[in-house]
Design a protein around this nucleic acid. Structure first.
Length: 595
RNA sequence: GGACCUGUAGCCUAGCCUGGACAAGGCGACAGCCUUCUAAGCUGUAAAUCCGGGGUUCGAAUCCCCGCAGGUCCA
């Protein structure tokens, strides 16, 4: 939806007034960035359709598509109208074509059941490029004014995170950035599961060790997991340790806090090196000792849906919630009345709800799908809102799924180090020496994040070192490279001559490559809006934009003696650069000016 | 036993929500392009029963049903 705040139109050049009727049709507030230029054509078509069908244009939302190469710039399909109008699609297209007239359209051609539009390229270029020029880094923003809360990553504090876990953070961090870009005040939360069995095991494993460092934890964790196999005594020790913790034994609390701190510090150091920032670390233990779980339990009891099962545990009846489990329930407490994870999580969700404004988002692995639906159902029993959830599937190794417990992992740290190392080697091979430390991180981390984020989250990823470290083709370095090339052109151009004359003559941008770029730039606001909770769409778009720029780069020299052409192409380059930078940043990837 | 997700050239992926004109990229393979703005690049060629089978539709990779395979969870 379009936000209420109206853009200041004074900065927009006069010719853009031509476009205003487009918007008037749809009663939208003039806001090209939010609407996407495609909407203009939608509205023109709607007007024409209206006269043929006899329904008001406002009710019509024709779908505009892209025709095959050379057939036109935009297209409208008349097939679905055939039944309603009792005419053949070709006939309808023939009737519609002459009715569609607009300054921004050079030509409308009926072709079979299709209507193909040839837009006035210079007018479209003018609008798109000047809009990007004016809006700069906010081009594409929905400009909502709102508050949002997102919880992501929330890795168990047991060891150095593996690449699979990182998928959560990479997606979550990108979504945080998108939220901020679109105008939300964002709070980023990280839930620390610091009172589970796994932490108890780790505490036990570290007992008696003189000094435990973050890097020792994985080894200790794997060791104790192995020892625990078929060792009921050790397992009993783990549970008694947990019991002591829950009873509030100060010494045990300190032990837990100690190990958890080492872990959280280590994890957040890695994540922050990757550029991920969190505003709040929320500890589960807080809900172990405070009264909130008791309050939640009371509220739930008040609904009459809580009963004691045969073991004496308090259980929430979720009948009627269409949960794929039989019977649909949610276990809240142990027999002794102490809270279980689920109850504490409900309490946590209530707290998040109280802080979240317009959006409340959580990123969870696919293993939490059913669990999340249980929590949602419980929240709905309480009349509370559930978060919007993004689920992602696991990253697999050729040897099976990653598991910290068994040590079958690729550590995020190792992936980071390898990526940086490779980037450094590439830079050295290219004779780059300035800023090489910073640049190899920008490129290496970019490649890492892009590799993970470009795949739709519901898909498993098979981790493969060679593919993960590819800096060619569909990769962040490819996109960064296009950006760096543009920067290089802009630098050279600035050097060569004074800028800042009258606005460029956009009619000089006539080639297909140039128009494709304009068209892609025009589509960015749509993509940015759709990608808010689906960042892989943006990753994909950027690849396409970089692709298109590279074709342009080889086809159309920018710096030349023709000052007018150069000026037009520079403004195109500058807009592409802006969108590449904005887009990469939204994925948590830096856009270097040279590489 | 039940539920959800995934299955697209040798390999990896986009498209599926909102059905439409020859299924789009990348890797790998092959053939070209650096005396012009960065070759992490560009151009071209070969390569696809869109997992299988039914159905809906003028039209299905896309929607529905039944299977198969992988992932996940529940019992």
């Amino acid at each position: 939806m379009v936000s209420e705040n109206q853009r200041d139109t004074e900065n927009y050049p006069d010719f853009m007034l031509f476009f205003r009727p487009f918007f008037a049709v749809n009663r939208f507030i003039y806001n090209p960035a939010a609407l996407g230029i495609m909407n203009e054509f939608r509205n023109v078509v709607a007007e024409a359709l209206s006269s043929v069908i006899g329904r008001p244009a406002e009710q019509l939302e024709p779908l505009i598509s892209a025709p095959p190469e050379g057939m036109g710039d935009f297209a409208f399909q008349c097939f679905s109208l055939a039944k309603e109008l009792k005419k053949s699609p070709a006939q309808i297209a023939g009737e519609l074509a002459p009715k569609i007239r607009h300054l921004a359209l050079d030509k409308v051609v009926a072709s079979g059941g299709y209507l193909n539009f040839f837009v006035n390229r210079s007018m479209m270029a003018a609008q798109v490029l000047s809009t990007v020029g004016i809006e700069k880094s906010s081009y594409g923003s929905l400009n909502v004014k709102g508050r949002a809360l997102i919880e992501h990553t929330s890795i168990n504090p047991n060891a150095s995170p593996h690449v699979g876990r990182a998928r959560n953070g990479i997606i979550g961090d990108s979504v945080s950035r998108m939220l901020r870009f679109h105008g939300y005040d964002v709070e980023v939360h990280y839930f620390v599961n610091d009172v589970g069995k796994q932490v108890a095991m780790l505490v036990l494993a570290c007992r008696g060790k003189a000094k435990v460092s973050f890097n020792d934890l994985l080894g200790e964790y794997v060791r104790i997991n192995a020892e625990l196999e078929g060792n009921p005594e050790l397992e009993a020790q783990v549970f008694s340790l947990l019991k002591q913790l829950e009873d509030g034994d100060e010494g045990v609390k300190r032990e837990f806090r100690n190990v958890v701190d080492i872990c959280v510090k280590g994890q957040s150091r890695i994540l922050s090196d990757l550029g991920m920032a969190f505003d709040h670390y929320d500890y589960e233990s807080k809900y172990l000792w405070d009264k909130s779980t008791q309050e939640v339990l009371q509220r739930l009891e008040g609904t009459g849906r809580v009963f004691a099962d045969e073991g004496g545990r308090r259980v929430l009846d979720l009948k009627g919630f269409d949960l794929p489990m039989e019977p649909p329930v949610f276990v809240l407490t142990r027999a002794d009345g102490t809270s279980l994870y689920g109850l504490r999580d409900i309490a946590y969700n209530l707290e998040k709800n109280s802080r979240a404004g317009d959006r409340n988002i959580v990123v969870l692995g696919e293993d939490h799908k059913l669990y999340f639906r249980q929590v949602s159902a419980a929240l709905s029993v309480l009349g509370e809102r559930s978060p919007e959830v993004i689920h992602y599937s696991f990253i697999l190794l050729p040897s099976g799924k990653m598991s910290t417990r068994s040590g079958n992992v690729v550590l995020l740290e190792d992936f980071m180090a390898q990526a940086v190392e490779k980037a450094r080697a590439e830079l050295v091979a290219r004779g780059k020496h300035a800023n090489i430390g910073r640049l190899s991180k920008v490129i290496g981390y970019g490649a890492l994040k892009y590799h993970v984020i470009r795949v739709s989250p519901e898909k498993n990823v098979l981790f493969d070192w060679e593919k993960a470290l590819s800096f060619e083709g569909e990769s962040a370095p490819y996109i960064q490279y296009a950006h760096a090339r543009i920067c290089s052109i802009l630098r050279k151009a600035r050097h060569g001559q004074a800028t800042g004359q009258s606005s460029p003559d956009y009619s000089l941008l006539r080639s297909d490559e140039e128009f494709q770029l304009v068209r892609l730039l025009a589509g960015f606001p749509d993509v940015a809006a759709k990608a808010l909770l689906r960042p892989h769409l943006l990753a994909n778009y950027l690849q396409g934009l970089a692709d298109c720029f590279n074709s342009f780069y080889h086809q159309c020299p920018v710096i030349s003696d023709d000052a007018h052409l150069m000026s037009a192409r520079l403004s195109l380059c500058s807009a592409v650069r802006q969108v590449l930078e904005t887009g990469l940043n939204l994925l948590g990837i830096d856009a270097p000016e040279e590489m």
